[in-house]
Design a protein around this nucleic acid. Structure first.
Length: 441
RNA sequence: GGAGAGAUGGCCGAGUGGUCGAAGGCACCCGCUUGCUAAGCGGGCAUACUGAAAGGUAUCGAGGGUUCAAAUCCCUCUCUCUCCGCCA
């Protein structure tokens, strides 16, 4: 969420910045300004009256004889005043509700360093790492490889759950687990992340905190329960562990000295993929349920940009250790996610598609999520005075999407006979297995 | 699922209608003291909104209600703890 005061005080700047993200709505900004003024007036009116009421109430406390005519008279007058206050406060609540609804729908402002552009075509490539693998044969895609190796079973997945679900078996299932464990070990042992095992079913307040709601409700799986009260009547399957991890510190004031720090978690993720009909229907690139190892970091405003570079390097390290060829692109304003100010995507090379595909997205969100979540920190105290709490800055990135990593391993490490070499870094997690071979016969 | 107890500031804990944004203690910060020494004394120490400022307003788990006035009374809900049942 953007800071209302900032938006209103820098209307033209905000308008221009949001336009680079595709938000074009002059009336909206007019409305925000009007509401902001109305809010101020309503508050002053309501609070002025309430102060008056309190003053008179205190006086009534001093009247010894509660049955006197004086007392009765005063009480009648104050009752009217009380009703008046209620009217003003109702008006105020109405304004705040509308303001809030409008602000919750606005995306974050891009960072000044974020390239301006309309779509993914405009994302600059930052660097390319490793060599594109060359094959003496026509490389197969992961579907062909996995199916013939007997490690994918799409028919049975469809039988159980329909399209966009998959069954992994044997070495395939083991590979998924090995990748997960490899990533978690790397991030906890070498990158300093605290491993977390979070809920994957969360309240809508958590989804709102990170920005999935209210705007992107159509892409979330919602679990309705008729046995709970209003607040937990609807739970959501997380589309990413970013939701669980970031909201861990909602409504908290962290110790400034603890920043920066990071959490990592392995979780399944769930997405309806509404609006992507026909896209990536083949294989396990785009699934309703997939595994991801997520990285989330909390820091101060000053640390933000450095932290983003650090986060990206942590995700990249996974690809490097696996020996996978990839590139880093920076997302332009038109392609960036709702909560992000600046984002790098890691795109891994998929020989079967002859294309680079997103395998990680690392974003710096500034105070956008923190404002929604009320997540703050207290800076170190200055000359004896307790410093005021500040909004924390949040970052998140995949480290990495496990299923897509599995795809990349299959496709980049395939051999002419359709077998797949296991990258060395994974072998300890695969019980020493070096090659996934065709089943005997 | 059944029975009961509770929720107050960073923590502990007092407070049953007005003088309570809230005693006291601990922790923390600043200063003083330095022959009572893992000590003593003084002061400070919630968050947010509003206002140029002084100040004002809100917040005692959440929401609603009664009242001129609610941490205190009433209603609904949530969470935590204990016991029983069930269960991975």
């Amino acid at each position: 969420m953007l800071d209302l005061r900032y938006v209103v005080d820098h209307l033209e700047e905000v308008k221009a910045l949001l336009e680079t993200r595709g938000v074009r709505d002059a009336a909206l900004f007019e409305r925000l300004s009007t509401l902001r003024k109305g809010r101020s007036e309503a508050i002053q009116l309501a609070e002025g009256r309430r102060a008056e009421l309190k003053r008179h109430s205190d006086e009534m406390a001093k009247i010894a004889d509660k049955k006197s005519a004086e007392f009765a008279e005063k009480r009648a007058a104050l009752r009217t005043l009380g009703d008046e206050i209620k009217t003003h406060e109702a008006k105020l609540m109405e304004i705040e509700q509308e303001l809030n609804a409008l602000l919750l729908e606005l995306p974050n402002l891009p960072h000044e360093s974020t390239p301006v552009g309309a779509s993914e075509e405009d994302n600059p490539v930052v660097r390319v790492i490793g060599e594109r693998p060359e094959f003496e044969f026509e490389p197969k895609d992961h579907v062909e490889l996995g199916t013939s190796l007997g490690i994918f079973d799409f028919e049975r997945a469809a039988k159980l759950s329909g399209s966009r679900f998959s069954v992994l078996r044997g070495a395939g299932a083991r590979l998924e687990r090995a990748l997960t464990q490899f990533m978690l070990d790397l991030h906890t042992e070498e990158h300093g992340y605290t491993e977390v095992w979070p809920p994957i079913l969360v309240k809508d307040s958590a989804m709102r905190g990170t920005g999935q709601l209210p705007k992107f409700a159509e892409d979330a799986f919602r679990i309705a329960r008729d046995d709970a009260d209003a607040e937990a009547r609807e739970l959501y399957l997380i589309p990413t562990a970013e939701v669980s991890l970031t909201n861990l510190h909602a409504d908290e004031i962290l110790d400034g000295a603890s920043l920066p720090f990071g959490y990592t978690a392995y979780t399944p993720c769930f997405r309806k993929e509404a609006g992507s009909y026909g896209r990536d229907t083949r294989g396990i690139i785009r699934q309703h349920q997939f595994d991801k190892v997520e990285l989330v970091r909390f820091c101060t405003e000053e640390q933000g940009l450095d932290e983003l570079e650090r986060l990206v390097s942590h995700a990249e390290e996974v690809l490097k250790r696996l020996g996978l060829h990839y590139r880093v692109v920076e997302l332009c304003t038109g392609d960036m996610g709702f909560a992000a100010r600046k984002t790098y995507d890691l795109e891994v090379w998929l020989p079967g598609q002859n294309a680079y595909r997103e395998i990680s997205s690392c974003s710096y969100c500034g105070d956008f999520q923190a404002r929604r979540m009320k997540a703050r920190y207290r800076p170190a105290s200055l000359d004896g005075k307790k410093a005021k709490p500040q909004l924390v800055h949040t970052l998140n990135g995949s480290g990495l999407a496990v299923g897509r990593t599995l795809v990349a391993v299959l496709e980049q490490y395939q051999r002419a006979d359709g077998s797949v070499v296991i990258p060395e870094a994974l072998r300890p997690h695969m019980g020493g297995l070096e090659v996934i071979e065709h089943p005997a016969g």
